[in-house]
Write a protein that binds this DNA or RNA. Sequence first.
DNA 1: TTCATTTATTGAACTTGTTCAATGTTTTTA
DNA 2: TAAAAACATTGAACAAGTTCAATAAATGAA
Lengths: 193, 193
Amino acid sequence: MTEPLKQNIAKHISLSEKETEVFCNLFQQRLIKKKSFLLKEGEVCKFEGFVTKGLFRVYHIDKSGAEQILYFAIENWWITDIDSFTNGLPSQLFIEALEDSEVLLISKNDKEFAYTNLPEIEKLFRVMTQKTHVALQRRMIDNLSKTADQRYLDFIEKYPKLYQRLSNLQIAAYLGISHEFLSKIRKKIAGKK
Amino acid sequence: MTEPLKQNIAKHISLSEKETEVFCNLFQQRLIKKKSFLLKEGEVCKFEGFVTKGLFRVYHIDKSGAEQILYFAIENWWITDIDSFTNGLPSQLFIEALEDSEVLLISKNDKEFAYTNLPEIEKLFRVMTQKTHVALQRRMIDNLSKTADQRYLDFIEKYPKLYQRLSNLQIAAYLGISHEFLSKIRKKIAGKK
DNA sequence: TTCATTTATTGAACTTGTTCAATGTTTTTA
DNA sequence: TAAAAACATTGAACAAGTTCAATAAATGAA
C-alpha cells in the first residue's frame, strides 16, 4: 500500500529501510469518492497527502464565483494547502477528487514527530518544496508572458497523460481563461492541422 | 555587517550564538552598483543572497523582448534563482540592482557545508522556501482571478514602502501589464478620489 | 434504455488590455 | 547647467479574452 510512497522518498533522499518503515507508518490511507472533498474553504488543513490512486484538483473560488485551479495531483503527487497547513489558518482552497481516489495522509503532529526523529525528512520536504516552488515560478512567468493559445499547447505537451483525464472546463480553470474561449482556441488549432 | 542576517535567522529558528557565527561567516559581502547585474540569463546561479541594502529585481525576458518581474528584493529579503542554483542549470533570469546595493552571498558549497554541519539550517531553508512558496501561490491566484486595476491597488496596499522606490515601468512588469496601460489605470483611479 | 445532468461548441456584443506613435516630464550625467 | 537619457502620459486602432444565450453532444444514474 505504501510502496509508491517509499519509491517517492527514495527518489529524494537516502533513508534506511527501518526509518522508511517508521515514516511510512505515520500515514493513514483514505478513499475519496469522485466529487468528494478532502478540504473545503474555511477549514484548517490538518494533513499532507500523497496520492496513490486517482486525481485531485486544488482550487480557489473568487468573489465573482469563478474557479481558479492552483494545481492537479495524480498518482505520486503530494497534496496539501501548505499555507493553511503550516500557518494553521482557515484555507482559501478546495481540494476535490475528480475521480475515485486513494490518498495517504500524515497529520501535522506526526510530521513534526518525523522532523524531530528522522532528520533526513527535513531534507525531503525542503527538496520537495523547492521543486514545487520552481514549477510554480515557471508557471508564473508563463502566465505573465504567454498567450492563452500557447499556454494550452504547452499544457498538452507537458502533461499529456493528465490532459486526457481532464475536461476542458478543468483545463480552462487551470489556464485562467473561460471554457468558451478554450473551445475557440481548440477550434482554431484544429483548423491549422 | 551581518547583524541583519542574524536577526533574520533568529526569526525562523533557534541557533546558538556560536553556530550563528559559523553560519554567518560563510557569507561574503558584495556591493552592486545601480543597473549592475548579480546574475544574467545563461549563467549558472552560484549563490544565494541576503540583501542588506538597496533594491533588486529578478526578471525574465520573453521571446518578444518583454520583461516579466518575478519578484523584487529589498533589505532583509533573500535572492537567488532557486531553479538554476539547485539544479545547476543555466538561468533564465536576470537579477539586477535598481539602486546601489549591498548583499551577503553564500556559495553552493558553503551552503551544503551548513546543511551537513548545522542541521537547523536545513529547517531554516525549508521554512523560508515554504514562505516564499505560499506568497507565490497567493500571487498566482490573484493573477488568475483579479483584474489589473485590482492587482495594482493590492500591490500598493501590500508593499507601500517598496512602491515608493519603484518606477511605474517596474510595477507594470511585475503586474504583467504594459506600462501604458498602467498609466491609464492610474489616471482612472486618480479621477475616482 | 431513458431522462437528467454535465460538458462542449458557437456567435454576437462587450470589456480588458496591447501596440504604436507622439508629446511632455523628470532624472542623470557630462 | 545644458543636453541626453529615462520615464510617464495620452489617443487611436487593434487584439485578446469575457459574457450571455442558444444548441448540441456526451455522460451518468435510475
